[in-house]
Nucleic acid binder design. Sequence first.
DNA 1: TGTATGACCGTTC
DNA 2: AGAACGGCCATAC
Length: 116
Amino acid sequence: MSSDDFFGRVYEVVKQIPYGKVTSYGAIARVLGTPRSSRAVGYAMNASHNDPEVPAHRVVNRNGILTGKHHFPGTNLMRQLLESEGLILEEDQIKNFKENFWDPMTLLNMQNKRGY
DNA sequence: TGTATGACCGTTC
DNA sequence: AGAACGGCCATAC
């Protein structure tokens, strides 16, 4: 994938989300340098089925709500995937969202500290 | 080339 | 504090 491919960049960020952690569309948009493109991030996730490597279930909205649940096969797949990673869900909302939120910008800071 | 759509977000009533 | 509105960006047709 080329670095000017928006979808590709979104997928690269999503792939970096640690196991058991989640992030938001807006956070991804910010780290890509386009803070207002959160909707486009969601659009990219809609097409993420092209790349099975992308853990799309770890991306929720800023309220920790599983807005993309209905885009997964089955009825509760997204929820089950998150629960299997140790997250606690209240209906379709992540209960301990703040504690398990992972900001992609953290990764960039780490890379910068490493001298890159 | 122009219009319509969406797995969103921040601000404003 | 909760609901409603508008804006913004990248695709699809």
